[in-house]
């Protein structure tokens, strides 16, 4: 069964090797490893995506082993969400029910908000939210962006989309 995992590694030597070791131990066949050294998280960790084939009964063992090695497993499972897009919202993001905004995307079933960062400079001042949305395909990314545009109009938020998304 083909599965994928999103990991976060410390930026120190030997981490990548350590993250691959459990796959060898539980007879996983690694298809690809993408090491996003240029996209460090605000926590200073390096995101790594691994796609592999493995007997599904071993996936929990791999996860436990990784966590024992001090590696953060952000997500593990079927590689359902293959597309992603970054969006920024500016305005009264929190007071216009941020939970509801996220839920409008999550409730579609084909897309999810997977990463969220907030900046709140002060009471009554507009705040900003960065979110990364993952979805099952390009069309679903497009639909998610239309939903956000609609939410933005309703809640008086400025929705800033990435330039690549226009081609979708």
């Amino acid at each position: 069964m083909r599965l994928s995992m999103d990991l976060e590694l410390q930026d120190i030597p030997g981490q990548l090797m350590q993250s691959l070791e459990p796959f060898k131990e539980y007879k996983g066949n690694i298809i690809s490893v993408v090491h996003h050294r240029d996209r460090k998280t605000p926590r200073g960790t390096v995101p790594v995506q691994i796609v592999f084939e493995i007997d599904p009964s071993n996936i929990d063992n791999v996860k436990k082993h990784l966590e024992k090695n001090g590696i953060v497993v952000v997500r593990a499972g079927e590689d359902r969400f293959i597309e992603e897009v970054s969006v920024l919202l500016i305005g009264h993001v929190v007071h216009t029910d941020l939970g509801d905004t996220i839920n409008r995307i999550d409730s579609t079933g084909f897309a999810e908000v997977e990463d969220l960062s907030l900046r709140m400079p002060g009471i009554d001042e507009p705040s900003s939210a960065y979110m990364r949305i993952r979805a099952t395909g390009k069309e679903e990314i497009g639909t998610s962006l239309s939903i956000l545009r609609k939410v933005g109009a309703e809640k008086d938020l400025l929705v800033i989309e990435p330039i690549e998304a226009e081609k979708i």
Binding site: S86, L88, S117, P121, Y130, I160
Partner: peptide, 18 residues
């Protein structure tokens, strides 16, 4: 006019400019 410096910096951390 509605773009804030916080939003610009948040975008920068994620690899983007506005």
């Amino acid at each position: 006019k509605d773009v804030t410096s916080e939003a610009l910096n948040l975008a920068w951390e994620r690899g983007y400019l506005i």
